[in-house]
Amino acid sequence: MKAGSNLEKVLSAGHFAVTGELGPPQGNKAEEVRHKAAHLKGIVESVNITDNQTAVVRMSSWAACKILLEEGLEPNYQMVCRDRNRLALMSDILGATALGIKNVLCLSGDHQRFGSHPESKNVYDLDSLQLLAAFKKMRDEKKFLNDKDLEGAPEIFIGAAANPFADPFSFRVTRLAKKIAAGADFVQTQCIYNMDKFREYMKQAVDRGLHEKVYILAGVTPMKSVGMANYMAKFVPGMDVPEAVIKRLKGVDKKDQAKEGIKMAIEQIEEFKEMKGISGVHVMAIEWEHRAREIIEGAGLLPRPQVD
C-alpha cells in the first residue's frame, strides 16, 4: 500500500472502483460542500475535489477536501500547475496529507484565458508529469525536489488525468505511458462519449501493457440535455461528442432527455465493466451530484465494497 486510501484498497483488491466529483462553491459556504457531499456518500470510493476548475476561482481544493473528510467521505485532492510553483505544490501536499488527505490528482490545469480572471499571470513552473514525479519522489524517496530529506513524507495515492480525445490521437497512449513512468498510480480519463475512439485507445494501451502498471478509471458524464451536448461538442476543449450522441438525445422528448442521458451513461458503464484494462469509472455528474446515485445504482455498482 502506498497510501492506504479507500480508493487504493478497493482497486488493489481487484474491485471495479467508482469515483465521483464535486466542484467547490464560488464562495466560502462550507454548507454547500456538505450538501453536495451528502449525495455522494456511500456510493463512491472517493470524490475528486476540483481545483479552480476551468480557471474559475472557487473555494480552495484542500479546504473542501477537509470538509469532505469531516463528512466521512474520502477526497481526491486535485492540484493544477497553473496556480502554484513547486514550492507551493510541495507545501500544499504536505499540508493536505497532514490533514488526512490520501489521494491526489495532478493536472496542468485549464489556461486562465477562458476563466474568471483572464488577466492573471500563470505559473506552470512544473507541468503535470513533473508534478507526478515530484510527489512520487516525496513519497518514495522521502525527498524534496532539491534532494533534501523530508521530515515526514507524504503517503499519497497519486493520480493523473488522461484525455484520449485530444490531438494528436496517435500520441495519446504515449502520453499516458509517460504519466505512468512519471509516477501515476491511477488514471482518470476525460468524459468519454466517442466509444469507438476510446476502444481503440484502450486497445493501444493494453497492447503496451499499461493497464498492468496503472489503474484506469473511465470518465463518465451524463448528458442533461441536447443543449449540454451541443455545448460540450462545440466549446469544451478536447471534448469529442459524436453526432450520434446528440441525435439520440434529440430523439426523445425534451423532458425525457435527462433520463435518456442517464440511461446512456449506464450503458457506457456496463461496457466499461467488461472492457479490458478498465479498473473502474469516474462519474462526473457536474452540478448534478444528486443524480449520481441513479447512475451508479443503475449500473449495478451498489452497494460499494468494503475493504480493510
Binding site: C81, H111, D127, S128, A161, A162, A166, P237
Partner: peptide, 26 residues
C-alpha cells in the same frame, strides 16, 4: 506552448490548435 509544458500536449489540444484559441496552433 501556452502552458510552457515540457511534456505535452495537454488535454486541451484540438484539431491542431491550442485550447486558448483556434487561432493559436498547438
Amino acid at each position: 506552448c501556452s502552458k510552457s509544458l515540457m511534456n505535452g500536449p495537454c488535454g486541451g489540444s484540438a484539431k491542431g490548435n491550442c485550447e486558448i484559441s483556434p487561432e493559436v496552433p498547438c
